[in-house]
Design a binder for these strands. Structure first.
Lengths: 126, 126
DNA sequence: ACAACATATGCGTTTATTTGCATATATTTT
DNA sequence: AAAATATATGCAAATAAACGCATATGTTGT
């Protein structure tokens, strides 16, 4: 029961839902790209990613100085079903996130996250 | 988003999961039957039922002095998918709940919840 | 009308979660 | 080696949930 509860609890927070919805749209996204997409602080994103990782819903793989996160596809029924449910969420904020995600990913070079501040970056800290 | 979050949050608590799992097994169950099944206090069960009701996952219908609760079948994709996920939870505590539920429901007369304390009742308050 | 019963709720306390800041660790570039 | 960048984390403060008790509301049977 505890394990299931951990997974469900990991879903019950706004930022984490946004992260999952985002990862549903792109294969591998690194932390700074998520930060720019959500327009949230780096430590906030980092914390929430950790919660999702501990629940086993996402996995991160380090490549150089970046850590790319993606949905953990190695799941059983329960997790699978839960993630499917997330797909049915339709919300203005998620649509806007998706727009910003596209913009941010378009800046990649050789399909790698770019270094340094992007134009959006400073906006993230309004 | 808020509405989805409310639903997800309503799932992220042990007692509420137990209630949903229980209602997945029986059509209409009244509060005292749930109390005996979960071996939790009446006010605790009552509170949690309210949270589930506010999230729209369960509905209660009053019949005389009893209120029978059941899953809200009048759902859209998201809720439906979420409730399906709950069905995949396999846990010792849920199995035991199911045993006690059977015992308790067997005491019904004319398929109606019985009045007064049952043998189990006092145990509920150990 | 009264007693017994079924369920809900107000409120203060406890417990859990999230936030923000500062800072740590690790990697890359110069 | 120093500077810049990417990500993570310890800790205290703020916020949110859950709990327990007592009690309220409504129903039924006598």
């Amino acid at each position: 029961m505890e394990e299931y509860l951990k997974i469900i609890k990991s879903l019950s927070e706004r930022t984490r839902i946004r992260i999952l919805a985002l990862l549903n749209q792109a294969q591998e996204v690194c932390v700074s790209e998520i930060v720019d997409t959500l327009e949230e602080s780096q430590y906030k994103v980092s914390r929430h990613l950790k919660v999702l990782q501990e629940a086993g819903l996402v996995v991160g793989s380090k490549k150089g100085r970046w850590i790319y996160y993606q949905l953990n596809n190695n799941q059983v029924h329960f997790q699978d079903q839960i993630l499917k449910a997330i797909n049915y969420i339709s919300s203005d904020i998620l649509h806007k996130d998706l727009e910003r995600l596209k913009t941010r990913l378009a800046k990649r070079v050789n399909n790698q996250c770019i270094s340094g501040k992007t134009e959006n970056y400073s906006e993230s800290y309004q």
